[in-house]
């Protein structure tokens, strides 16, 4: 934010200057020095404050961030084990969802994609990871294709159901088989928050499912 420029020595536009008698003009100058100088100081201070003001996050920031729990037992869709430590230095946006999810997951992932677009080249330092809460149906192949259709920053992780359950519970994520559609297909109810892991590998922030793209983008920029 740029501070408004105030020149205390030339405060008033031509009209006033031209019609003011010398004495009035002198008063005006004194007046503008008295009022203008503090205004300038306030404006500069405000400008400096805006520059150095800490980012106010839109998500819920952890009071005491701890290292992101291990994802032992889960694999990336290419079959390699998920090791979050290997991603240190970058920001991880973690989500739990499934490819059969028609409304909430595609809405959230599309919003995250738009937030990454706003980050430009910095988006390369963000990894969006969806852990499948439907490992029985989300094969690595399916999950991999699904996630990569959102862009190169998006990756899927899955594993045996007990490993998924253990990881979900350490992250405070609930999931359970939900509504039966009547055609053999079914929904999986799940916690739909996004979690942010910072560049030092700490679980730092939680965003609600209904998040604003601009706010997410500015939070991510601050985490980077």
């Amino acid at each position: 934010m740029s501070a408004p420029t105030i020149d205390p020595l030339d405060p008033i536009d031509g009209d006033v200057e031209a019609t003011s008698p010398p004495r009035g003009r002198h008063r005006l100058r004194t007046f503008s020095l008295i009022v203008g100088t503090p205004m300038l100081v306030v404006a500069l201070a405000f400008g400096a404050f805006s520059l150095f003001r800490p980012h106010i996050y839109s998500g819920t920031v952890m009071q005491a961030p701890t290292a992101a729990p291990s994802m032992d037992g889960l694999e990336w869709t290419d079959g390699t084990p998920v090791d979050l430590d290997a991603l240190q230095g970058d920001v991880v946006v973690l989500y739990f969802g499934y490819t059969g999810c028609p409304d909430v997951c595609p809405t959230t992932l599309a919003q995250v994609g738009k937030a990454l677009d706003r980050l430009g080249d910095d988006a390369r330092r963000v990894h969006v990871v969806m852990v499948s809460v439907d490992p029985a149906r989300d094969t690595p192949e399916l999950l991999g294709e699904y996630m990569s259709s959102y862009g190169p920053e998006f990756a899927g992780a899955t594993g045996p159901i007990d490993a998924v359950e253990r990881v979900a519970s350490t992250y405070g994520i609930f999931f359970a088989r939900g509504d039966d559609y009547g055609n053999g297909d079914y929904a999986v109810d799940h916690t739909a928050t996004l979690m942010g892991i910072d560049t030092s590998g700490h679980l730092r922030i939680v965003w609600p499912a209904t998040l604003d793209v601009d706010r997410l983008a500015s939070d991510l920029r601050a985490l980077l």
Binding site: D103, V104, G178, D179, A187, D189
Partner: peptide, 20 residues
């Protein structure tokens, strides 16, 4: 679509669920 049906998503306490 093989089948279409009106559905309602509810996000309650951060948990998303869906029903007819």
């Amino acid at each position: 679509c093989m089948v279409m049906a009106p559905h309602l998503t509810v996000i309650d306490d951060d948990i998303a669920s869906m029903s007819q």
